[in-house]
Design a protein around this nucleic acid. Structure first.
Lengths: 345, 345
DNA sequence: TTGTACGCGTTATCAC
DNA sequence: GTGATAACGCGTACAA
């Protein structure tokens, strides 16, 4: 007799379908149907079973069900960094949407590490019906490999053949550069995010293109992992470029820049204009940050919908590529460049 | 023949233990042992099995294993609100710690709703070995009921008999009131957090007691769910009390207060002193917030350790009550009260 | 409409 | 040291 869990305490007997059957005076099959396909049974039978189940505190064992059907009722969401404020709203949205579709959610934090991400995917794959993979740092090849084993939807990662929802910041970043150009800036910097990030590549390219188009010189400053601290530490390098404005990978980095600038005695936007991205900090920075709207919650919800679609038998597997457009949100960290070029303390 | 998962694409055959056995020319039992208890087997046998498994891309099916052993290798973390920056570090810590102990983590966001929390606990209970329940909004009674079914560790919730780790802000909140008293404040306000929150009750009481002890009048201002927006909206009520300083439920609320104050043209700390709690915003507010250190990551890690202990057979079930002490972090949002009482715009 | 019987992939128990 | 076999709890053809 298996220990059946390591549960402690007295009432440790998780009632099984058999006990309910006995209590209701029917067979186990009938109990199973009372839950899964009530319309197959006579209403009074269903009622009797429900009653017995309620009385015993019976909860269908999802593990057993999964073993039998291959359907788990779980899906996994893997993100590179929960601590980045971009993700919590997405996590919430995924959870809520999954819940309504009858799924429970595994959450994996890959800690910006492809190897760790790989491990998560592998170990979760046996108990999950599908994956939402956000801002994956994996290679296209590896993503394809995983997608072959389990239905998988990408967020902010563009791999052909894999369903994906992309928050397209190209237009908004272009607007940001135009905005700076109009203000009179002619030399700006892009402060990079994580190397493996699709969003980072997209934004970097968008800044560069818009700059080229408008005759604005664009300097690239590397930063790495998207954190407040890295933004703060990048300030000297930033100032060294002689740029009069900076577009940061995201709001977190931009906020770090704001702090670093303040330490250096450089005013914003008087000494340097700053643009963020994702709008996760809204008006909570000081000064309130000009930024690019993001739609992470929507992206999460859309991803779950896509996944749910793939999971529904009979749905053709389309190569979906859902684009979520964004726009510039002008607040107060952008202004005309300082007279006589960038101001150094 | 069951569809066996809804996986698409070709190589849809998740290899089973039987196939590995056949390939290695051994029995299924041997394959099982090669993974679970290698020392029971001759090294060369283990090697042969491993080889075959690797060749086929075999991954032990955790679901099947769980059904057989009653051990899932999963644990669930339930929080009231992922979007509150207090939780992400804790989630991370839980994940990391769980990972090292060989557990995958389910995450549930109860959305501050006891009913939703209840549902999560129920539906997760069949696929999880234990729970970490953070800042639960459930009644003691319900918590006890769940704890009887599955091992469960509480964070920031004090229910006798249930293992719990508590971030004890009593001392630090007391320090905050002393700090304000020394600065000359004699009339302060406490801006409340969620009604069901143990932390909120603890802090409210701590402010009250310290006030009584020092002869500082304490006004209570209700706020509700801990959000930036609610802090912002509470500002008029706050000013109406005539208090010269406010202790907010947490940093998020405090930051909202900062914003609301700024809108009303009240300077900080010149017009009003503000103290936060949890130190999740560090120096990222403007002005940098005087606050109470929290230790959410440590709390999460400790909770997992406790849980892992309970799950280890042979461990006596102790009524653990782990207290994590905190202290005041003075930054710049506190100063002497305005001359001639609180300044109204 | 309801019951019987088998299979899902794994581990534990007992033989060998 | 290794192999057969019975659970684990549930879903579902198939039979009644």
């Amino acid at each position: 007799m298996p220990t059946h869990g390591t549960g402690r305490g007295p009432g440790d007997a998780a009632p099984t379908i058999g006990e309910v059957a006995a209590a209701a005076g029917v067979s186990r099959a009938t109990v199973s149907r009372a839950f899964g396909r009530p319309q197959m049974l006579r209403p009074e039978t269903v009622e009797r079973v429900q009653e017995a189940a309620r009385h015993l505190g019976y909860v269908p064992n999802r593990v057993a069900r999964a073993l039998s059907t291959g359907r788990f009722g779980n899906l996994a969401l893997v993100v590179p960094d929960i601590a980045n404020p971009f993700f919590p709203p997405m996590i919430r949205a995924v959870q809520g949407r999954a819940d309504r579709a009858g799924f429970a959610v595994f959450l994996g934090d890959a800690d910006e590490d492809p190897a760790r991400e790989e491990v998560l995917l592998r170990q979760l794959s046996t108990q999950v019906e599908g994956f939402v993979l956000a801002s994956s740092r994996l290679t296209d090849e590896r993503i394809r490999a995983h997608a072959e084993r389990r239905p998988l939807v990408l967020v902010n990662r563009d791999v052909e053949g894999i369903p994906r929802v992309l928050i397209d910041t190209t237009r908004a970043v272009g607007q940001a550069v135009e905005h700076l150009h109009e203000l009179g800036h002619r030399r700006i910097a892009y402060l990079s995010g994580p190397a493996g990030s699709w969003s980072n590549r997209q934004r970097r390219r968008a800044v560069k293109r818009a700059g080229d188009r408008l005759g604005v010189e664009v300097l690239m400053v590397p930063a790495g992992r998207a954190t407040f601290e890295l933004g703060r530490l990048a300030v000297p390098a930033l100032l060294a470029t002689g740029a009069t404005a900076v577009v940061a990978f995201d709001d977190l980095v931009a906020q770090g820049v704001l702090a670093g600038l303040s330490e250096q005695g450089v005013g914003v936007p008087a000494g340097l204009s700053v643009v963020g991205c994702d709008d996760v900090l809204a008006t909570r920075t000081y000064p309130p940050l000009t930024t690019v709207s993001a739609r992470s919650a929507e992206a999460g919800a859309a991803a779950v919908d896509l996944l749910a679609g793939m999971l529904t038998p009979g749905t053709p597997l389309a190569d979906t590529r859902l684009l979520l457009d964004t726009s510039l949100v002008v607040r107060v960290t952008t202004g005309p460049p300082p007279r006589g070029g960038p101001r150094r303390p």
